[in-house]
Amino acid sequence: MKKLYWVFIVIVLFFAGDRIFGWVLKQLTGKSQFRYTRLYEGKAKADILLVGNSRGLIFYQPYIEEITGSKTMNISYNGMPIDLAEVLVKDYLEKYPAPKQMILDVSMCDRLNKSLISGFNLYTPYSPRMYDLIHLNDQTGAVAGKVFHLYRYNSEIFQRSMFYLNKTDEDWLLDRVINDAMVTGITEYVPDTIKIVQRDTIKPGDKKERLFKSIMSSLTASKNGEVEYVKGVMEHLASTVAFAKAKGVDVQLVINPYYPPYLDKLVNLDQLKAEAEKATGMKVHDYSNAVKDKEGFGDYQHLNKAGSRIFLDKLMEDGVLKK
C-alpha cells in the first residue's frame, strides 16, 4: 500500500508542477510584445489589419503608419495558412472595434500548414476557435495541450514570443538585397505551380486508426468554435472576407510583388487570382509585377524594406491603402 502512495505522489507532483509552470509560462508570454500575444491580451487595437504569410510581412508597419497616420496590426507569419488566418482575423474582429481596413495577400492561399497551426497551442486558453482548429489538424496535440499545460509552450511560436519579450515585432522585415547566386540561378529555376489545395475531411489511412480517431474526436471536440473543416481553402478565404465585411471593415485583397524573373516561372498565378475572386466576389488587386528593381527584393518572393516602401506607395496611389 505504501508503494501506491509513491505513485500517487508522482502523479500529483507532475500535474501540480505542470499547472504551476504552465501558469508561469502563460504570465511570461502575456508580457511579450509578440503580435499574437498582443492580439489576445487586448493590446492590438488598430485602424488597419494586415494579413498574409511571410509575404504579408512586407506590409512594413512603420512606413504604413507614417504615410497613413493610422495604427496598424499585422497578423502575418511565415508559412501561415488561410485557415489559421481566418481564426486570427475572426478572433481579432470579435475582440476589438472593427478596423477601418483589412488588407489580405491572397497568395497565402497556396498551402496548408499543420505544424504551424499546432504551434499556436499556447493561445488556446484565449480562443476556443483556435482550439478547434488545432484539434482538427492535430488532434493528439490539441488534447495533449489540454491535459499537459507545459505542452502548449512546446513550439516555435512560444520561442518567438520570448524573443519579443522586451521589444517590438513591428519592424520584422528583410533588410537585405537578393544575392547574386539567386539572381543568376533564376534562369535554371524550374517553373513553379501554385497549389490550390482542397482539404480532405478524413485522412486516408488505416481503418482502425480512423475508427479510433473518430471515437476520440467525439469525446474531445469542443462545440464553441466555428471552424468548418469540410471547406476548401478558398472557402476559408471567403468566410474570412465575409466575416470582416459583416463587421463593416473595408476589405482589400491583393497579390504582393514577386521578383519579376521568378514571377515568369509561376504558371498559374492567374488561376489563383480567379479562384479567389470567384470565392469572395471581390476584385483582387494584382501587384505581383509592381516592383521591378532587384534592389527592392530580399529573395524571389519577398520585398525588402526599400521594395516595401515602393509597393506601399503604389497601394496609396491606387487607393487600396487609405488614410
Binding site: 507532475f14 508542477g17 505542470d18 509552470f21 492535430d138 493528439t140 496535440g141 495533449a144 499537459f148 507545459l150 505542452y151 509552450y153 512546446n154
Partner: peptide, 10 residues
C-alpha cells in the same frame, strides 16, 4: 515534465 514540454505527440 521534460516530455510534456519538449515532446512530439504525433
Amino acid at each position: 515534465w521534460a516530455i510534456a514540454f519538449f515532446g512530439s505527440f504525433g
